[in-house]
Simulated assay, not measured.
Amino acid sequence: MISLSQLAKIFPTKDGDVTAVDHIDLTIDQGEIFGVIGYSGAGKSTLIRMLNMLEAPTSGAVEVAGRNMNSLSGRKLREARQEIGMIFQHFNLLWSRTVAENIAFPLEIKGVSKAEQKERVDELIELVGLSGRGGSYPSQLSGGQKQRVGIARALANNPKVLLCDEATSALDPKTTDSILDLLVDINQKLGLTIVLITHEMHVIRKICHRVAVMEGGRVVEQGDVLDIFRRPQQAMTKEFVKQVTEPEETEEALRHLFDDERTGSVLQLTFVGGDAQRPLITNIVRKFEVDVSILQGKISQTQHGSYGSLFISVTGPQAEEAIAFMREQQVEVEVIHGG
């Protein structure tokens, strides 16, 4: 569906050239939700804007839905862009137009008849959960409702691809989740390919099938979301995964325990899929002469299953045997203190 080959973007400045995107190769499959995560300055916004040629690449190739985007200009480029919807962090709505008029705007530009516009707008208002708000103006809407209008407008021309540029960054956590649920619903109902960029791992964890991690203009790691959570390879990826799997106070709490001689071995256990629901701790206590204390833990859901991270302390004469047993159960065990 989307293929990037050695894609690069260099911005000339008075202080020298700045490489925003550094020769990226990437393939995104039809119908998947693909996330690109990175901190500010990583190059992710420039990357997504090159998919619809809002930003022209310095070198490399972009192919979307069978079209070589680099070779298009004028009318053909406008036609190609109609197959690529886009939503933005700050909504980009027309404040003098109602909800219905904002959604109809792309159809007006395309020359669709008034009757067809109304039919399509009514469909989209229902799809995004804004029934009864067609006559409202953006100033009368909440942030989440504004983004729903943005999504409906992006879908007006029945695009094959939806690009989301930090689409939930301006929203509170509860509203963010509702918008993410809507994107999953749209993906499933319409078979739409969704590409989203974010700096929040919660967004990736909740709806993405695969993810690419960007740093310094390059993709430093990519793969299935569950695999990335299970075995992050790069320091940057591990940092992002910790946003979701470890509460902020984990490190401080564990460091305090390290000073207590009674703590014993402190372990981090990682569970994936069905393993997250198994009674592992109960089995260990029954099977071995050990005391187990649960320090902290969290189970998160991804599109491909659950992912759990649990911190425990183990003391007793059979602590080593208990740790060996845990590893035999296909549970990843990292001894972070003692042992």
Rank of each mutant, 00 (worst) to 15 (best):
S5R: 10
K9L: 14
K9T: 11
K9R: 15
T13V: 10
D17S: 13
V18D: 10
A20I: 07
D25P: 13
L26K: 07
Q30W: 00
E32I: 04
F34L: 02
F34I: 09
Y39C: 06
A42Y: 13
G43I: 13
K44D: 07
M50Q: 15
N52R: 00
L54Y: 03
E55W: 06
E55Q: 13
A56T: 14
S59L: 06
V62G: 08
A65Y: 05
A65L: 06
A65K: 03
N68E: 10
R75N: 10
R78M: 08
E79W: 03
R81Q: 12
M86T: 14
M86P: 13
N92C: 09
S96L: 04
R97M: 06
E101Y: 08
A104Y: 15
K110I: 05
G111S: 08
K114E: 12
A115V: 14
E116V: 02
E123D: 09
I125E: 00
G135T: 13
L141W: 10
L141P: 14
K146G: 03
K146M: 08
G150N: 10
R153K: 09
A154S: 09
N157Y: 05
N158E: 11
A167I: 04
T168M: 10
T168F: 02
L171K: 08
P173C: 05
P173E: 07
D177V: 05
I179V: 12
L182H: 00
N187M: 01
L196N: 11
L196R: 05
L196M: 15
V203M: 05
C208Q: 04
C208W: 00
R210K: 08
A212N: 07
V213E: 02
G216A: 10
G217F: 10
V220Q: 11
I228L: 09
R230V: 12
Q233D: 12
Q233C: 06
K238I: 01
E239N: 15
Q243Y: 09
V244K: 00
V244D: 01
T250I: 00
D259A: 07
D259I: 09
V266S: 11
L267Y: 13
L267F: 15
L269D: 02
T270Q: 04
T270C: 00
V272E: 11
D275L: 15
Q277E: 13
I281A: 09
T282E: 05
F288V: 06
I294P: 07
I294H: 08
K298H: 03
L310F: 14
G316K: 13
P317E: 11
E320M: 08
E320H: 06
M326F: 07
E328C: 01
V331P: 08
V331H: 03
V335N: 12
I336P: 15
G339L: 15
